[in-house]
Amino acid sequence: MRPFTYQRANSPAEAAAAVARTPGAKFIAGGTNLLDLMKLEVETPQHLVDVNHLGLDQVQPTPERGLRIGALVRNTDLAADARVRRDYGVLSRALLSGASGQLRNKATTAGNLLQRTRCPYFYDVTKPCNKRTPGSGCAAIEGVSRDLAVLGGSEACIATYPSDMAVAMRALDATIETVDGAGAVRTIPIAELHRLPGDMPEVDTTLRSGEMITAVTLPPPIVGRHVYRKVRDRASYAFALVSIAAVLGDGHRRVAFGGLAPKPWRVEAAEAHRTAQEIADVALAGARPTRQNAFKLTLARRTLAAVVEA
């Protein structure tokens, strides 16, 4: 871990300003992914701004009958929130399928959104990786790629995005609220938060330098059956091979996939179709699997059938 200086911030704007003006600065909240990566020197911040004491830990109703989730609400608390359990079951389920009890107690809403890929080559500093070291090449495309992306990848990177929570939020059309170093506030639809790698895989999101997530807003509840189905290599405490967040109502349905792409994968045009097969045909169109991960497409189709036709 590279040496860094540390400060506790007292307000979101102060935190954002500190990160914006300090070279190599990063926010730290739960720390469960950042410290993991800092120990390996995949992440090497020179300055950490601790945002754990800013409040931002409440789940509150919005005037639009939705919910506003503070950036620092812990994953456990968000999953356990009575309103989330009742009205946004898919989100509660997604959170509970991720990580472990200990990690969910620490991990925050904003931090979960900003998780970095678990591609093994990204984690190993002795290997080329365009996401970690731009221009160094991608060891994964011709390498061990079983867990990696079948959709949305590029010649430079086929990393998958690991969050479960975000897949549910994508199905729910959540909105991200941010503040920047100048105190300016903006909102970003979750569909536009994460970006595809293209030729700049080192940039995971559309956030600007120093911009800090302050909240995630959920629109009013969507009536229907809320399902989060996660398929993985062991029964718990593992990342998804494929996951599906779905809200299935009378005459409307929403389906988002995890584990397949560099971002939560949702194709709204697919949702008008009736059968799982038709939905999958549209949602998974354009897939470019490797020999090792082509099974994910079969798995996604079969899992979708289990979710939709149950």
Partner: peptide, 14 residues
């Protein structure tokens, strides 16, 4: 490649 306990899977409680 999977030289850690997150990606070398051993059985968990579940």
């Amino acid at each position: 490649v999977n030289h850690n306990m997150a990606s070398y899977h051993v059985p968990v409680h579940a």
